[in-house]
Design a binder for these strands. Structure first.
Lengths: 254, 254
DNA sequence: GTACACCTTCACGTTGCGTCAATGTCAAAT
DNA sequence: ATTTGACATTGACGCAACGTGAAGGTGTAC
């Protein structure tokens, strides 16, 4: 099967301009040019384009993709690993920023105003990180990837990030639950929101969510005094309230 | 305090070119121009720049930022909260990307090379996801932000991504543990790696990690038959082996 | 006085295409 | 046979958010 630009474009969901651009930049050349100067693509080009689009979806630059798909002996996995580590770095940055924004929110709400230096501290930290990233990238390019070190730091960042999220979620649950408790109604919107948040929280932990298990855990909060103590810390009765909310949420009013 | 371009640039960690660009596009004008044509910024500009940079970090366009910061009837905390939620969104996106990249890596490394159909399948799925995302964006643009719906879908995706990660980690634990169990030595490198993975796993769940609690959980795996059943499913004795490994890992051989 | 760091404006380069513009080609309907 | 409409082609400009010079004026320290 042979395709013109538009046919191939429609097949793959990209524009003809994009195909011409890929031709221009030697990323994907047509199989041949017909007598009228039309670009004609064949099956091999379809496959290659698929590969290209795949990498593009992963966020690699076209230049990078060119290296991967044009060089058959190129180590795609290594490239992906590098890309992954870049993505993880990016996420780490994001986490820092989120922390900064949250700090700002609370400090603004708390009324304490920051000095100029403090205001920019977060950004400076970010810049430093950027530099380290840049530096790290150069090192990697020079010496290849020290897999152990890299993956170690990756994992550390990952769990740190996730950990932050879980903590945040836990805080959200606590505040929502406290609000909801005031209504006294475990079927209220707020209480149901708390139950939903709680579900999200346990989903970090459980490989699979089931209503039964969720409801069971709610009961456990009442039965197990360690949990009860945790939830009733501020307001006695909160654990039972949460259990009720969960029972309603899960429809497990057994 | 008054600043020239470079002084403000150093304070805020951005280039003088950027400041000039912001001036040019009417995003941030200097307080005044001195007799030699130098841009002079004051305290108000420092504050405004800080705001600008916060929004810039979000990935908001400068045009959008201009609208926000030039509008005096503007709720800073609310904006920051929106900010924050967008950052979380962004991280969710990143997590999805990372998960995709990792899936690709592991499937390639797993030696099981994908057929074209399978490759295309993943790609198509990704496209569908993108479309849905796009669709969602359009909806939001049309109807403003239906806060509830939005946060729901956000959280859903987020937990989905995280959930994938946790699942992966759980699988890693299982396989590493199975390997380690063969050695019979809970102090072996493999067993310790399993304990480490296990630590990472529980850190998704626990707000704070403590060796004591970790070791305690290990003991619980032996004491609580539900857990024992889970871990001993393939190899009886695995739960106890994991407990021992954790005890060594945490140094809690009490 | 001169070196040197700083300031200014002007203007081109970057990525990954979208979007004209001007022109050529092909198949079908008139 | 011609006209129409949908294709194709090659430029070339534009976008965002600056980086990176060039060419020249200013401030200050030795």
């Amino acid at each position: 099967m042979e395709y013109t630009v538009q046919k191939l474009g429609k097949l793959s969901g990209i524009s003809s301009r994009t195909l011409r651009y890929y031709d221009e930049m030697d990323l994907l050349k047509p199989a041949r040019i017909n007598s009228s100067g039309y670009r004609i693509y064949g099956q091999a080009e379809v496959n290659k384009l698929q590969q290209i689009l795949f990498y593009r979806e992963l966020g690699l630059s076209l230049e990078h993709i060119k290296q991967i798909v044009s060089n058959p002996s190129f180590d795609g996995v290594k490239a992906l690993n590098e890309h992954r580590s870049q993505l993880l770095d990016k996420r780490k940055q994001l986490d820092l920023l989120i922390a900064n924004v949250e700090k700002t929110i609370s400090s603004v709400e708390g009324g304490c105003n920051m000095t100029n230096d403090e205001k920019f501290e977060g950004f400076k930290q970010k810049m430093i990180d950027d530099n380290e990233q840049q530096y790290g990238k150069e090192i990697r390019e020079k010496y290849g990837d020290d897999t152990v070190n890299q993956s170690n730091s990756k994992v550390k960042n990952m769990t740190q990030a996730q950990h932050d999220e879980v903590t945040k979620l836990a805080n959200e649950i606590a505040s929502t639950l406290a609000e909801a408790f005031k209504t006294g109604n475990p079927a209220s919107d707020l209480a149901q929101k708390a139950a939903d948040l709680h579900k999200q929280w346990i989903m970090y932990y459980w490989p699979k969510y089931s209503k039964e298990a969720h409801a069971g855990l709610g009961q456990m909060y009442v039965d197990d005094e360690r949990f009860t103590a945790y939830y009733d810390k501020e307001q006695p009765g909160t654990a039972a309230f949460l259990r009720d909310a969960i029972q309603i949420y899960t429809g497990m009013k057994s």
